[in-house]
Design a binder for these strands. Structure first.
Lengths: 138, 138
DNA sequence: TCGAACCCTCACATCGATGTGAGGGTCAAC
DNA sequence: GTTGACCCTCACATCGATGTGAGGGTTCGA
């Protein structure tokens, strides 16, 4: 498929598909006329890139760890340089931290919403399972 | 405390503390000489702002939902305008999605790392609990 | 053979979060 | 009273991810 179709199927502007290629995240083939040529695998790949980008990883890092993540069913050990493993470990921990942080905030929001909806006494109220009274998250 | 101390205690550049104020996320008092004046509460507040920022929310949104999250022990229902609740609900769902996405990616990394470390046969291998053979995440 | 709908490569613009520095006050300690 | 460590307000720079458009090929159907 060409860039237009991939763009539509992934909901990603053409501009960005070219950008990801420029950053070394994807390597599209070219047909004789110079058009980029993609196969099915790119649909998932682009989705994954966007996921990681959205997770806050910069393209620089994504480029490093993507080879470890995108093998469809086989893990190629030769791919794993020590640097890559270190990066991967570090990013895994970063992600874990971030996930915890997000979860705390999400729960604080959910808690607030529940409190507002569930118990609408006139002015103020405590949240349901409010041990120390702090719904706030970090 | 003044901006320097808050900066140090939150690990946040002065510049950003001023920026957050400019964006309406925090409202510092002023001492007679014009210096910003902060109390203890700002330490948590700034941490929370950074957490949300890091979660990918823009200051615009943070400004909206922060009032729902930062009450130390009391939830003030009057704060909850319908728009705010809608935003909050939307962002909560967004966060949930994002958390799932991050978790998938984190698990894919962890899985890969485990596979690389646990079982180092010469060339290729399958990941441990590899049902469909896809370690990839989106 | 013409036009619409693709594609290409630059290359500059924008946006939000930050960095950096100039120009200038405040204040405590020496 | 001067120095050093604070603080202030601009205001321009940077950075990564994106938007946008100019200038120009390719393909295909009317």
């Amino acid at each position: 498929m060409r860039i237009g179709e991939l763009s539509e199927r992934t909901g990603t502007p053409r501009r960005l598909l070219r950008y990801y290629e420029e950053q070394g995240l994807i390597a599209a083939g070219r047909s004789p006329n110079g058009y980029r040529e993609y196969d099915e695998r790119f649909v998932d790949r682009v989705a994954q890139i966007r996921g990681l980008l959205d997770a806050g990883l910069p393209t620089r890092i994504i480029k490093q760890i993507l080879p470890c993540l995108d093998k469809p069913r086989i893990i190629h050990f030769p791919d794993a340089t020590p640097e890559m493993l270190a990066t991967l470990e570090l990013e895994r921990d970063r992600l874990t931290e971030r996930i915890e942080c997000l979860t705390r905030n999400r729960d604080a929001m959910a808690e607030y919403l529940e409190a507002v909806r569930g118990d609408n006494r006139p002015d103020t109220a405590r949240t349901p399972g409010d041990r120390d009274g702090r719904a706030g998250a970090v």
